[in-house]
Design a protein around this nucleic acid. Structure first.
Length: 561
DNA sequence: GCCGTTTTCGGCCCGACTGTTTTCAGTCG
């Protein structure tokens, strides 16, 4: 079977890492890393593309296009195999250690015979690292520490973990401070926390030391700490240059590189302090990011789009798409009540919706089937629909009668068709048999998509961040089927799920598939999670027309009547 | 390895901080 984009990207990234350890030209290394990035976030499958189509992609030329073709067909390529043979298999993993880069890996390997994590730990404990020229006692401790962190496993964190940490830091900083980095870009998982502040450096460093587990480093321009086992970087700036600093620290890295290339081609240099004229050496400072964009001849790029996925080119042409905005959201399309496993009564849901200024909320309780506590059977659902009608007589926010029906293992639904007849909107979700192989799972989900009673596929990949990996499902086929059948895919806004993720949202958007943002709220406070789903929609380049939640009540229910 | 209304060769983002150093290499973001 043809390799997926993800698999191709992994091979390319590995080639980059192997070349790096071997001391190859850093620009060649970067070329592989960039190509891996491009393939990993491409809207269509590279398996279906010929050489010429591949070579048109940014960062992909003749050599890498050939390798992609080879990887698609064989799952690997001769270049990777050749490079792998040149070193112990455990070596590339060492690049992930904090404070350990390619030069260090190479020295450890060549001078100490280190071939992996275990060797490295033994060498550090045996005090052999400090014997190397250019290495000392501190480096040895740093490495030992990094090995410990790696063994505990340090994946990216969920938003439920990142936000409280960020809030803790913001509260501790004695002055105005703003969150930047991937948290500001609305990514579904966060690597580290980045903050820009106007507060004085010395005072801030002291305050941060008080709340953090450890100060990693502290200088005049920045302080890095570890808090809750996570890294946070705080940069100091001034009001007249916070524009460039925010831009820099918000990233992404790839976006920053592209922006600096744009500056360069216009005879300027961009850094976190501003724009320097190459000829005069004069520095222009900026109070806002928008002023920096303007000086570069670009329209402002929203943080959610800053990934170097084509947005820079469009901004230069002034042709960025307009993204769905929070004010355009008229309702929540996935909420549970106390008729199944939620805590809210129907009245409470209507009140919570009204408090948020919504026109409607879709009540979508679980259907009764194995594994779901207190799910509704057909008579239960009918009774709930009658109750919803009652509440709607007085409620300021209309409750839509829905259901989150199980897609059972063979692709049929957990409730009979007649039971779904009375629903305004039907969500169908996988809640069992997560381990099915890809083809079975894909056909199972597509069967639900093809069922004309189903309006929305709930949390399509089933992932729970940090706890459960996505199910094996061919999203390209699922998105294609959703496009054909005009079935919407959910952007589940629960911060533990955030499912679909941005890459699939963008693919769905490009295929004209509608997306439904649902918080999956089980309690009133969780309706506020809609903002996470909205950020994801924006990261997937969605405009208001792509999102069901921007439709009026009449529009939404009319498509059924 | 990629790329080009200055180029098909010669560039390739830019700065902060640390550790081990007598002036800088390596790592990170």
């Amino acid at each position: 079977m043809d390799a997926t984009n993800r698999q191709v990207a992994e091979v390319l990234a590995e080639i980059g890492a192997l070349l790096e350890i071997l001391g190859e030209n850093p620009f060649k290394v970067r070329a592989y890393a960039r190509a891996a990035e491009v393939v990993g976030h491409l809207g269509r499958s590279v398996a279906g593309m010929d050489r010429d189509e591949l070579e048109v992609l940014p960062g992909i030329g003749k050599a890498i296009a050939e390798k992609i073709t080879e990887i698609v067909e064989t799952g690997t390529c001769r270049e990777r195999e050749r490079l792998r043979e040149a070193m112990p298999p455990g070596l590339p993993a060492l690049l992930d250690l904090q404070g350990v880069g390619p030069k260090t890996v190479r020295r450890l390997w060549k001078d100490l015979g280190v071939g992996g994590l275990d060797d490295l730990e033994a060498a550090a404990r045996g005090h052999r690292i400090r014997t190397l020229r250019g290495f000392g006692e501190k480096k040895e401790h740093e490495i030992l520490r990094a090995v410990g962190v790696a063994r505990r496993g340090s994946e990216r964190m969920s938003l439920t973990e990142a936000e409280p940490l960020a809030d803790l830091l913001l509260a501790a900083i004695p002055g105005e401070a703003r969150v930047a980095g991937s948290l500001r870009r609305g990514r579904s998982t966060i690597g580290d926390i980045d903050i820009v502040t106007l507060a004085p450096a010395a005072e801030t460093a002291l305050a941060l030391a008080g709340v953090a587990d450890e100060v990693i480093d502290a200088g005049e321009k920045k302080v890095s700490v570890r808090i809750g086992g996570r890294r946070a970087d705080v940069r100091f700036t001034a009001p007249d240059e916070i524009g460039a600093m925010l831009l820099y620290l918000t990233g992404s890295k790839a976006f920053n590189i592209r922006l600096r290339e744009v500056a360069r081609s216009a005879g300027m240099r961009l850094n976190e302090y501003g724009l320097t004229d190459q000829e005069t050496g004069g520095l222009r400072r900026f109070r806002t990011e928008d002023e920096v964009f303007a000086a570069l001849g670009m329209s402002p790029v929203p943080p959610e789009l800053r990934e170097d996925r084509g947005e820079v080119e469009l901004a230069l042409e002034g042709a960025l798409p307009s993204l769905v905005d929070v004010q355009e959201v008229r309702g929540d399309l996935h909420v549970h009540s106390d008729w199944s496993d939620g805590s809210m009564s129907l009245e409470e849901i209507a009140a919570a919706g009204e408090a948020r200024g919504y026109e409607y909320v879709l009540v979508s309780d679980h259907s009764a089937s194995l594994g779901i506590a207190r799910g509704l059977d057909a008579p239960g659902l009918a009774r709930q629909q009658a109750a919803i009608e009652q509440v709607n007589r007085t409620a300021g926010c209309t409750l839509l009668a829905g259901v989150e029906v199980d897609i059972i293992a063979d692709g049929r639904l957990g409730l009979p068709d007649e039971a779904l007849e009375g629903c305004d909107l039907v969500i169908a979700s996988v809640h069992s048999a997560f381990g099915q192989d890809e083809d079975v799972m894909t056909r199972r989900v597509i069967a639900a998509i093809e069922n004309r009673r189903v309006d929305i596929i709930g949390h399509p990949t089933g992932r729970i961040i940090g706890r459960r990996p996505p199910v094996a499902v061919d999203m390209e086929r699922v998105i294609g089927a959703a496009a054909e059948n005009r079935t919407a895919l959910e952007i589940n806004a629960s911060p533990g799920r955030l499912d679909l993720d941005d890459i699939y949202i963008k693919q769905a958007h490009e295929r004209g598939v509608r997306l439904a943002i649902g918080t999956d709220a089980h309690a009133p406070s969780e309706l506020a999670n809609i903002r996470y789903g909205l950020a994801l929609a924006r990261r997937g380049w969605c405009g208001p027309g792509d999102i069901l939640n921007t439709r009026s009540l009449a529009d939404l229910t009319g498509r059924h009547g």
